[in-house]
Computed example of a mutant assay.
Amino acid sequence: MQKLMLSGKIHFARVTACELDYEGSLEIDPEYLAEAGILPYEKILVVNRTNGSRLETYAIPGVPGERAFCLNGPAAHHGKVGDVITVMAFSLMSEEEAREIDPPVIVLNEKNDIIMRKGVRK
């Protein structure tokens, strides 16, 4: 049996930009992607704590060090600058792997600085 499990998470990120005239996706600082164990172009679930919206898209790496979280294309309708979002990636794994997983989670503050790390980064 296969299980779909949380494999990486970025918690309390602040949206830094919304660009409607773009192909789509969520641009994320690649340093945060690496810390959370999320690959560039991996499918993600984005939950907007501010307005309650949820969307599935993919992670596009931005410029390292810019701390960007930019909603692009149609995803831009799901938030505005300053909104608080959580980004989650999920992976299919065996039941045995699922029982052992301790996904990497990073928690950000209002300036998108990492203030806490949880789980195991591989």
Score class of each variant (00 low, 15 high):
14 R>Y: 01
14 R>F: 05
14 R>N: 12
15 V>A: 00
15 V>C: 10
15 V>Q: 01
16 T>R: 00
18 C>H: 03
18 C>M: 05
19 E>D: 15
20 L>P: 05
21 D>F: 08
22 Y>Q: 09
22 Y>C: 14
23 E>L: 15
23 E>I: 14
27 E>N: 11
27 E>L: 09
28 I>Y: 04
29 D>H: 11
29 D>C: 02
29 D>A: 07
30 P>F: 07
30 P>W: 09
31 E>S: 12
33 L>E: 05
34 A>E: 15
35 E>A: 15
36 A>Y: 00
37 G>C: 11
37 G>R: 00
39 L>D: 11
39 L>I: 05
40 P>F: 08
40 P>W: 08
40 P>L: 11
42 E>Q: 15
42 E>H: 11
42 E>Y: 02
42 E>W: 02
43 K>I: 03
43 K>R: 15
44 I>G: 00
44 I>Y: 01
44 I>A: 06
44 I>D: 05
45 L>S: 07
46 V>D: 02
47 V>F: 09
48 N>C: 03
50 T>C: 08
51 N>L: 06
53 S>M: 10
53 S>D: 08
55 L>G: 05
55 L>E: 03
55 L>Q: 06
55 L>V: 07
56 E>G: 07
56 E>F: 11
56 E>H: 09
57 T>Y: 01
59 A>P: 00
59 A>Y: 07
59 A>Q: 06
60 I>D: 09
61 P>M: 08
61 P>K: 10
62 G>K: 00
63 V>Y: 13
63 V>K: 15
64 P>Q: 11
65 G>V: 05
65 G>Q: 11
65 G>E: 10
66 E>S: 14
68 A>V: 12
68 A>K: 13
68 A>T: 13
68 A>H: 05
69 F>G: 01
70 C>V: 14
70 C>I: 14
70 C>F: 03
71 L>K: 05
71 L>F: 08
72 N>K: 14
72 N>R: 15
73 G>F: 01
74 P>L: 11
74 P>E: 13
74 P>N: 10
74 P>T: 00
75 A>S: 15
75 A>Y: 03
76 A>T: 00
76 A>E: 06
78 H>G: 03
78 H>R: 13
79 G>W: 08
80 K>M: 11
81 V>M: 13
82 G>T: 08
82 G>I: 11
82 G>K: 12
82 G>Q: 12
83 D>G: 03
83 D>M: 08
84 V>S: 04
84 V>N: 06
84 V>M: 11
84 V>D: 03
85 I>D: 05
88 M>R: 13
89 A>W: 05
90 F>H: 14
90 F>G: 06
91 S>A: 15
91 S>E: 13
91 S>Y: 00
93 M>C: 15
93 M>D: 07
95 E>P: 04
96 E>D: 14
96 E>P: 04
